[in-house]
Measured scan of single mutants.
Amino acid sequence: MTVRVDGVDYEFSSLEEAVRFALKMAKSKGAEVQLHNGTFHVE
């Protein structure tokens, strides 16, 4: 599972870890999280 934040990809071994990271980053940026074909994008 890959989480992309500001064009940088972060790899996670589990969906749970990836979701937690994506939500944490989105909250800190006041951004939204989108899921596309198994890849999260924080914008």
Rank of each mutant, 00 (worst) to 15 (best):
M1I: 13
M1E: 01
T2V: 10
T2Q: 04
T2M: 10
T2L: 09
T2S: 07
V3A: 02
V3G: 00
R4S: 06
R4D: 02
R4L: 03
R4G: 01
R4H: 09
V5I: 08
V5M: 05
V5F: 07
V5C: 15
D6N: 10
D6P: 01
D6G: 07
D6E: 06
D6S: 06
G7R: 02
G7C: 15
G7K: 02
G7P: 00
G7V: 01
G7I: 02
V8N: 04
V8D: 02
V8S: 03
V8K: 09
V8Y: 06
V8H: 06
D9H: 06
D9F: 11
D9K: 07
D9S: 10
D9M: 11
Y10W: 05
Y10A: 00
Y10L: 02
Y10I: 03
E11W: 14
E11N: 12
E11D: 07
E11P: 09
E11T: 13
F12C: 12
S13F: 10
S13W: 10
S13P: 10
S13G: 09
S13K: 10
S13H: 09
S13T: 11
S14A: 03
S14P: 00
S14L: 04
S14K: 03
S14M: 02
L15F: 13
L15A: 08
L15G: 03
L15R: 11
E16V: 10
E16D: 09
E16T: 07
E16H: 07
E17P: 01
E17Y: 03
E17T: 03
E17M: 06
E17L: 06
A18L: 04
A18T: 01
A18Y: 02
A18V: 02
V19W: 15
V19K: 10
V19A: 07
V19G: 02
V19L: 14
V19D: 01
R20T: 07
R20F: 08
R20A: 12
R20S: 08
R20M: 10
R20C: 15
R20K: 10
F21D: 00
F21Q: 01
F21L: 01
F21I: 01
F21W: 06
A22Q: 02
A22K: 02
A22Y: 08
A22W: 05
L23A: 06
L23D: 02
K24I: 11
K24H: 11
K24D: 09
K24M: 13
K24Y: 14
K24W: 14
K24L: 12
K24A: 13
K24E: 11
M25D: 01
M25W: 09
M25F: 05
M25Q: 03
M25R: 02
A26G: 04
A26T: 04
A26N: 02
A26V: 05
A26W: 10
A26H: 04
K27A: 14
K27V: 12
K27L: 14
K27M: 13
K27N: 12
S28N: 12
S28R: 12
S28P: 03
S28L: 14
K29Y: 12
K29H: 13
K29V: 09
K29A: 09
K29D: 07
K29G: 09
G30M: 06
G30W: 08
G30Q: 06
G30Y: 07
A31R: 09
A31G: 12
A31C: 15
E32P: 06
E32C: 15
E32W: 14
E32Q: 13
E32V: 14
V33R: 02
V33N: 02
V33S: 03
Q34L: 12
Q34S: 13
Q34H: 15
Q34A: 09
L35W: 13
L35H: 05
L35I: 11
L35V: 09
L35Q: 05
L35F: 14
L35E: 04
L35A: 04
H36K: 11
H36T: 07
H36A: 06
H36M: 11
H36F: 13
N37Q: 05
N37I: 10
N37G: 10
N37W: 06
N37L: 11
N37T: 06
G38C: 15
G38S: 04
T39Q: 12
T39M: 14
T39N: 10
T39L: 10
T39G: 10
T39S: 12
T39K: 13
F40S: 07
F40M: 12
F40Q: 10
F40W: 12
H41G: 08
H41N: 06
H41S: 05
H41P: 10
H41E: 11
V42D: 09
V42W: 08
V42K: 06
V42A: 06
V42R: 05
E43N: 11
E43P: 08
E43K: 10
E43V: 15
